[in-house]
Nucleic acid binder design. Structure first.
Ligand SMILES: [Mn+2]
Ligand SMILES: [Mn+2]
Ligand SMILES: [Zn+2]
Ligand SMILES: [Zn+2]
Lengths: 130, 130
DNA sequence: TGCTTAATGCAATTTTGTTGCAAATGTAAT
DNA sequence: ATTACATTTGCAACAAAATTGCATTAAGCA
């Protein structure tokens, strides 16, 4: 299987996601890395981080893709399957997307549906903007 | 206020969404309408249908935008605010996106978050593909 | 210190979405 | 039926976002 390498671009992006404490939009990441690495590299690094289970992706209703380090990952050393069934909140005012790790919706799929992943995105006003 | 017109393009797209009985991706709609109307018109018609409350939009985790006629709308004559808090199922095998109208997740946001819209997308295997 | 192969940069290309404007057409009034 | 008028459309141009190929670089290991 493919070996995983630790490169400056990867470190930088991971750091940014760590520091942010919220989900960053692709364009935010592009901006943050401008001068650091190429635009294409950002796409590729994020793709890799997804596969490695370091980050997860969530899409807001307006179609903007966000990436976040799932805080639940911090405890374990990874390459395990982890679920991201928590809610993501998209503030319509400030635009911030936050992982609400503790908010796990309850629902029941009809018989014979097999659940793998979820993307729960809710939008409205965050505490700061209300 | 602006008057609403019933045009062939609009009728066609609405019909397609009706007949499908599931959410159609933008590209599916583009294909279906190829020869019928221009690419730009599709964007504009869908935009209008959204505003008129005839359809709703949902985005799958892979970022693909889908449009669906919400079956709950059929009873009423519209221009009411309606919520689409139901779950959408995205089959990883056949790619179909379906509105699960009856599946409304239960969850509780932390204090001071104000909820407006939701986009609940879950993926896995649909009954047909399991 | 080399060797292997993953990762990067860069240019080119493709895909996706937007805008401006003239022409066409749906609808309601005459 | 004809007219009037705002809405809708097509088309071309533009802009933005994402993907691909390939030569070059460099991470990690022996
Ligand atoms: Mn995680
Ligand atoms: Mn509806
Ligand atoms: Zn906010
Ligand atoms: Zn299926």
């Amino acid at each position: 299987m493919a070996q995983i390498r630790n490169t400056p671009s990867k470190r930088f992006i991971q750091q940014a996601l760590n520091d942010a404490g919220r989900a960053l939009s692709l364009s935010e990441i592009q901006e943050a890395t401008s001068g650091i690495c190429d635009r294409v590299t950002v796409y590729r690094v994020l793709e890799r981080l997804l596969n490695e289970g370091e980050v997860h992706r969530t899409v807001s209703l307006d179609g903007v893709v966000h990436y976040a380090k799932c805080s639940a990952c911090e405890t374990n050393g990874h390459t395990h399957v982890h679920d991201h069934h928590h809610v993501h909140f998209h503030c319509e005012s400030c635009g911030d997307v936050t992982c609400l790790e503790s908010v796990i919706p309850e629902f029941k799929l009809p018989r014979k549906y097999e659940l793998h992943e979820t993307n729960f995105m809710v939008s409205g006003l965050c505490p700061g903007c209300r």
